[in-house]
Simulated assay, not measured.
Amino acid sequence: MATPPEAEGTRLGDFRSAAVACFDLTLDMPDGDRERLLVSILRAVSEYVGSIEGENDLRLRYEAGDFRSAFIRKDVKQILAGGDCLS
Score class of each variant (00 low, 15 high):
residue 30 P to C: 06
residue 19 A to F: 02
residue 53 E to R: 15
residue 23 F to R: 07
residue 4 P to E: 10
residue 52 I to K: 02
residue 19 A to L: 08
residue 84 D to R: 15
residue 10 T to V: 13
residue 29 M to P: 08
residue 67 F to L: 12
residue 3 T to D: 10
residue 81 A to V: 05
residue 44 A to Q: 09
residue 56 N to A: 07
residue 78 Q to V: 04
residue 78 Q to D: 14
residue 77 K to W: 05
residue 30 P to F: 10
residue 63 E to I: 14
residue 2 A to R: 15
residue 76 V to F: 14
residue 84 D to S: 15
residue 66 D to T: 05
residue 63 E to Q: 14
residue 81 A to W: 00
residue 78 Q to P: 01
residue 4 P to K: 03
residue 81 A to C: 09
residue 61 R to M: 00
residue 7 A to I: 04
residue 54 G to W: 07
residue 59 R to E: 01
residue 30 P to G: 01
residue 45 V to F: 05
residue 23 F to Y: 12
residue 59 R to D: 04
residue 17 S to Y: 02
residue 32 G to Y: 12
residue 49 V to W: 03
residue 12 L to S: 02
residue 18 A to Q: 09
residue 80 L to W: 02
residue 48 Y to W: 14
residue 81 A to D: 12
residue 1 M to Q: 15
residue 58 L to H: 04
residue 42 L to V: 01
residue 44 A to Y: 02
residue 6 E to V: 14
residue 87 S to W: 13
residue 8 E to A: 13
residue 61 R to E: 10
residue 5 P to L: 11
residue 13 G to D: 14
residue 85 C to D: 05
residue 54 G to R: 08
residue 13 G to N: 13
residue 68 R to Q: 14
residue 25 L to R: 13
residue 5 P to I: 09
residue 52 I to Y: 02
residue 40 S to N: 05
residue 28 D to K: 06
residue 62 Y to R: 10
residue 28 D to Y: 11
residue 27 L to Q: 07
residue 25 L to Y: 08
residue 19 A to M: 06
residue 12 L to T: 04
residue 16 R to Q: 11
residue 36 R to Q: 03
residue 63 E to A: 11
residue 82 G to I: 05
residue 41 I to G: 00
residue 49 V to C: 00
residue 5 P to M: 10
residue 18 A to D: 03
residue 87 S to K: 13
residue 68 R to S: 10
residue 58 L to P: 01
residue 12 L to D: 04
residue 40 S to C: 04
residue 60 L to A: 12
residue 25 L to P: 00
residue 5 P to K: 14
residue 18 A to T: 00
residue 54 G to D: 09
residue 17 S to C: 12
residue 16 R to D: 10
residue 45 V to Y: 06
residue 6 E to H: 10
residue 82 G to P: 06
residue 64 A to K: 05
residue 28 D to A: 11
residue 63 E to H: 15
residue 26 T to L: 00
residue 36 R to M: 05
residue 33 D to I: 08
residue 82 G to F: 09
residue 61 R to Y: 03
residue 77 K to H: 06
residue 66 D to L: 02
residue 2 A to G: 13
residue 51 S to Q: 10
residue 43 R to S: 04
residue 76 V to S: 10
residue 44 A to L: 10
residue 10 T to F: 13
residue 83 G to A: 07
residue 8 E to Q: 15
residue 38 L to N: 04
residue 31 D to P: 01
residue 79 I to L: 10
residue 32 G to F: 13
residue 52 I to F: 03
residue 72 I to Q: 12
residue 80 L to S: 01
residue 85 C to F: 11
residue 38 L to Q: 07
residue 86 L to F: 08
residue 38 L to T: 00
residue 51 S to H: 08
residue 72 I to V: 15
residue 7 A to N: 00
residue 86 L to S: 02
residue 33 D to C: 11
residue 37 L to W: 00
residue 80 L to T: 01
residue 11 R to V: 12
residue 54 G to H: 05
residue 40 S to Q: 03
residue 25 L to G: 00
residue 31 D to H: 14
residue 57 D to L: 04
residue 33 D to A: 14
residue 65 G to M: 12
